[in-house]
Computed example of a mutant assay.
Amino acid sequence: MTPQKAAAPRTVTQGALAHSQILDAAEELFYQEGARSSGIDAVVKRAGVNKMSLYRQFESKDDLLKQYLQRRDEKFLAYLHASLDKHPGQPRRQLEQFFTDLAARTATPGYRGCPFVNIAAEFPDTEHFARQMVAGNKARLLATLTELAQAAGASDAPGLAAGLALLIEGAYTASQTYAPGNSLLPALPLVAKILLDAALPANT
């Protein structure tokens, strides 16, 4: 009798590694192609795991979306504070630096705008958990802008923060609607400076 070949050993992806691979895959797909249009099959294929592995780590696609948004929120806050930390104790310089960095970021190849704006466009129901998480991210950004405006000496810190927040949201949208190489996004630091000059005391 011809001896049977031993079955090839099955590749087992450990829980923590599988969780990371699946979340990485979801992050790429949800950001580049949209959360609604990216099905579970596409996620597991990109992650290199099977559906059983996914459902061991995530209760549902909603759970996966929730963890995607949590990770994106953490990444945004890390990006924001990395920018502000370039000028500790100098709130005006911190605000100016953020817009300089945002102008550079929006020009990065493959940039698809703000992931929270993208999610908001996909989920029209404002009571949906994803929209609630979007609102939470934007509220944290606005709170940070308000604190910096106050520290910089603005007489109307909430008003300045609102103007800067609108400028940020406009930049996110323009990064997707205007052709690459447009003149709008490089103007971000100048427009921010105009707002700061108008709202802050001289010599700040």
Rank of each mutant, 00 (worst) to 15 (best):
I119K: 03
Y172W: 14
A187P: 00
P186W: 05
T146K: 13
S53R: 14
P115S: 07
I194W: 05
D101S: 13
Y111S: 08
A143I: 01
F129Q: 14
R92N: 05
L141Q: 09
A103G: 05
G153R: 08
D41N: 03
P201C: 04
I194R: 15
L80F: 14
T173E: 11
S60C: 06
T100K: 08
A165F: 06
C114P: 01
V117T: 14
I194K: 09
Q97Y: 00
R56T: 03
F129G: 12
I40C: 14
G163D: 12
A149C: 11
G39N: 15
A121C: 15
L84P: 05
L167K: 07
A6K: 15
A152Q: 07
G15S: 02
Y55K: 08
K51E: 03
P91Q: 00
Q90G: 05
L84M: 05
S183V: 08
L190Q: 07
L141K: 09
K138N: 07
D73Y: 02
T126L: 11
S53G: 15
P115V: 00
Q132E: 00
V191F: 05
G34I: 01
H19C: 09
L95F: 03
Q4S: 13
T126C: 05
L200F: 12
K61F: 12
G153V: 07
L29G: 06
P9D: 04
A179M: 11
L23N: 13
C114I: 03
Y68L: 01
S37A: 14
Y55Q: 14
A26G: 15
G48F: 02
H81R: 10
A121Q: 14
V49I: 08
S38L: 09
L80E: 12
P109M: 06
